[in-house]
Design a protein around this nucleic acid. Structure first.
Lengths: 229, 229
DNA sequence: CATTGTAAATATACAGCGTTTATTTAATTT
DNA sequence: AAATTAAATAAACGCTGTATATTTACAATG
């Protein structure tokens, strides 16, 4: 019979490697992630890592998925900390949590929302579900606005028929919201992402310490455009 | 006496190296830029490059500055193709050119607006002027709106006094616009950047072919929020 | 014209990287 | 105790950026 994984309490080597990788990425930036440096920090040899990840890209993919999970959970927690009747309160809290998470983990933010994956298309199919799912909190709040009749209705461009199936696929990951809600959520997402990513990349120069207020201003502008009452 | 640079017509080696670098970045993506591969393509040896760039980072920095220049010129060209009396026409053209440039050179867009520079702060001081200057077209149009009294006025968060000098520095790079115009330009920039960067990173799933329309919708929404008439 | 001075290319080498292969270690099951 | 086998290691390959030493070739000078 084959030797079962381990004897005593499994040290969950995969998690330990990921932890070391996060630590390293926080110090050296997202680009300078080295398997050998991870191994060195863990006092093992580099090829040992290959018992847990087939290659470096797989490790990065796992990090991306974990980052999406952390981000998505932070979004949901922010939403659920506010009564489900206070729709705008939920939206505000989620929006504030968005930036807070990004500023707390800038390299994770950059990892998931910044560059496309090096391996490009095939890897992103593993990642896309996590990414879409992480938007569940935002989409659900917009959908709640719509159901309550408080979504400011405008005529958005419609999804072209040939992409209807792709849309349905994304839709089920994000909680069966109406396409109108998904579109609004996307536009909201783009706006907070735009400000936050500029801020993280240090492209917002004179507003550095005032980033808080500018961001809050933008959240209110979003409210004015999309949400009644 | 020392030997003057070269004899005949200088082949502008720096430019040739940069060209080869752009070619490579377009094929392998921004992360896989290799001096040796550039040298191989140019049929020279790798250390020869060090006669023109002190190290790899310097080459990347030069590419970033060149990309900002290309981007900024494309912005100015779009603006100037429309009569200076047609303010909204200029804004629309500039906005459309923004996305067009990004979709045409996604790796350049990612290079300048995506990740912070690895070398971090010291390098970015070389780059910041180029970056700020590339926003001149947008800022100038917003400023023209303001001068014409067509800027929808709202009370933005003010710049804190201790960052007044940093702001003045940025301001002169961008054409002596009023702080109100700079703030509006920043918010406009964040919105187009948000949408465009999500699109480039393939994070906008069901709207792929409809990216045009969604982007145009957003430009009009920006107009509704900020520009009268 | 021959000599010299110097810019720019090369050759060589080093350390670090991801990854593969072969080998050893150690634990579990028979 | 013997057999089995997962997981660690050791060594090596080709790649990378970069430093050093050397060669090449051309322009200015005596």
């Amino acid at each position: 019979m084959p030797r079962p994984k381990h004897s005593g309490p499994q040290p969950d080597m995969r998690e330990m490697i990921l932890d070391a990788a996060w630590k390293q990425i926080a110090e050296t930036g997202a680009s300078g992630l080295s398997l050998r440096a991870i191994a060195r920090a863990m006092k093992i040899t580099a090829p040992a890592i290959y018992n847990y990840f087939p290659d470096r890209d797989a490790l990065v993919t796992a990090m991306v998925i974990a980052a999406y999970k952390s981000f998505g959970e932070s979004q949901l927690a922010a939403r659920d900390a506010v009564s489900s009747e206070d729709l705008w309160g939920r939206m505000w809290a989620t929006g504030m949590a968005y930036r807070a998470w990004a500023l707390r983990y800038p390299e994770r933010y950059h990892l998931i929302f910044g560059a496309p994956i090096p391996g490009d298309v095939p890897l992103s199919e593993l990642i896309q579900p996590s990414g879409a799912h992480s938007m569940l909190a935002l989409v659900s709040i917009v959908e709640a606005f719509r159901v309550a009749g408080k979504l400011r209705t405008v005529d958005f461009p419609r999804v072209t028929p040939e992409f209807e199936t792709a849309y349905q696929q994304w839709r089920c990951l994000v909680g069966d919201a109406d396409i109108l809600s998904i579109t609004v959520a996307l536009l909201v997402w783009a706006r907070v992402h735009g400000l936050v990513s500029l801020e993280i990349a240090r492209n917002i120069p004179p507003f550095g310490p005032n980033g808080d207020e500018l961001y809050q201003y933008e959240l209110q502008a979003i409210a004015r455009e999309f949400f009644k009452e």
